[in-house]
């Protein structure tokens, strides 16, 4: 079973995304910030990362850059999920190394669809 790492400092958002993604048949790991996320990524086995941007400690962009700097995770698909909707935010996300940028609030079906698309799984 593939594993999705969900990184968000809001517990409600983590639980919401975790419930949606696990009901679509994926294992879910959660982390409360970028540093926690990096630890879990390095120690575990994840197939996709879903991350917020605005988190205390390590923000989402730093988190993504560190993932991309690590040789064993250069290719892992990363989806940003953020409240910020401006084009400049999206450009920053892609520049940092994300594959997709989704604006909150997330819709369950769309989220599952994006995750499957990024993982190459049938819709």
């Amino acid at each position: 079973m593939k594993t999705v790492l969900i990184v968000d400092d809001s517990r409600t958002t983590r639980n919401y995304h975790a419930a949606i993604i696990s009901s679509a048949g994926y294992q879910v790991l959660t982390a409360t910030d970028g540093a926690d996320g990096l630890e879990k990524l390095l120690m575990g086995s994840c197939d996709l990362v879903l991350t917020d941007i605005n988190m205390e400690g390590m923000d989402g962009y730093s988190f993504i850059r560190q993932i991309r700097a690590d040789s064993s995770h250069r290719e892992i698909p990363i989806i940003i999920v953020s409240t910020e909707s401006q084009t400049k935010d999206q450009s920053k996300g892609y520049a940092a190394g994300a594959n997709l940028y989704v604006v909150k609030p997330t819709q369950p079906d769309s989220l599952v669809s994006y995750v499957k698309m990024m993982l190459g799984d049938p819709q």
Binding site: I53, N54, M55, E56, Y61, S62
Partner: peptide
């Protein structure tokens, strides 16, 4: 700020 780190630290 445009810098996410500065924004987040400001919240803290």
């Amino acid at each position: 700020s445009d810098d996410a780190f500065l924004r987040n630290e400001a919240v803290t």
